[in-house]
Design a protein around this nucleic acid. Sequence first.
DNA 1: TTATATACAAACATGTATGTATGTAAATGG
DNA 2: CCATTTACATACATACATGTTTGTATATAA
Lengths: 208, 208
Amino acid sequence: MVRKTKEDAAITRQRIIDAAREMFLLKGVSRTSLEQIASHASVTRGAVYWHFQNKAELFHAMREEVYLPLIDRMDDTLLGNTDDPSPDPLGRIRKHLESTIQILDDDQTTRATYEVMMTKCEYVDEFADVLQSILSNCSGLVHKMEQAYAKAQEIGQVGTQLSAAELALDTHLFFSGLLHMWVKDTEGTLFRNRALQLIDTHIKLRKK
Amino acid sequence: MVRKTKEDAAITRQRIIDAAREMFLLKGVSRTSLEQIASHASVTRGAVYWHFQNKAELFHAMREEVYLPLIDRMDDTLLGNTDDPSPDPLGRIRKHLESTIQILDDDQTTRATYEVMMTKCEYVDEFADVLQSILSNCSGLVHKMEQAYAKAQEIGQVGTQLSAAELALDTHLFFSGLLHMWVKDTEGTLFRNRALQLIDTHIKLRKK
DNA sequence: TTATATACAAACATGTATGTATGTAAATGG
DNA sequence: CCATTTACATACATACATGTTTGTATATAA
């Protein structure tokens, strides 16, 4: 076998991640062996062990590939450019929810990663801390949504006495549920095809 | 070893289910071997294979132990006794959500089973159909909630133009999200301790 | 009372995943 | 141009998990 250049190695690494995601989706994280991942990526386990310590590290790499960009987008969509001449915080919240669904619709990689994380992974031992990471991520998201709701209240966009914090939590729980159902509803009839409409309903409920 | 009576055998079967639940919670479904379950139940794998064909069937038994009663309760709490002199459908919806949380709070068995199903199981191969079962369960629940919301609208309990179907879906997604977060939030600070308050907020949003 | 089915325990055979150690050819730095 | 990494492939050792088979003492039915 020929030794690869650094760029070649990076490609190999990426292909291993892609192969892992596809095999995880097919057989679940536990039942996917590193041998299966390797052969699906047209390498041997040697390559996998060269790039990643073990399956858990490979899983984390797969996860971060979609989670890091997600967090960046959150800041932009939800709060970015705060000194807007005609701000529409409620519209921003809606846009954030809609664009997240849009990404799931458009990007197979993100969709598969979500499906793996929600229904094809067991959060025990080395994977247990992922749940904590998800939770702290949530509390960050809720906090940002609360700020957006607070602004919406300032400019009189919302028609309810409830606090911004309460509204943000309710929206977050709604959207968590939607994501879970969206992912599970692979046929699409119940939630996937109606996601945008469901978001519309949810926003309407708090509009003035 | 002595041959047991039928009652003894039933006890053994139940102890195997209990042991399975506890081990699943600890190590995840995949990483729990039937040997671990057996020894934790103080029997051998022979007993496990006598009562169940394999791990999947044991998992189903564990699941049905909490799901079948749950569905029964749903009918009672949400719709039961429809010819009430002073009906309070919105209150029934609230009660249903609250009592579900109450059960999770009180009953360790139900709590553990939910946690296993949500974060310690991979829905692939023999377990894949469980997701379908969950989905059809959801659509049944949504349907019943829609009926309750329709009655709430009839008697003018809700203060929004949205349809009963839309309200039911939004509530269902909210509650799905709440259950997921409740289960994951083992510390309790974010959702578990505030669940009842979150339900209150959600109901208030649609009250007249 | 006896034959049979029950409720397991114990032993066996097989397959498979993991981690590590070693080999190696080519890229890269000096 | 040479020494040293790099980027893997190959081989090895170990450890389990699973399913099945066999053995057995005793409830239970006839």
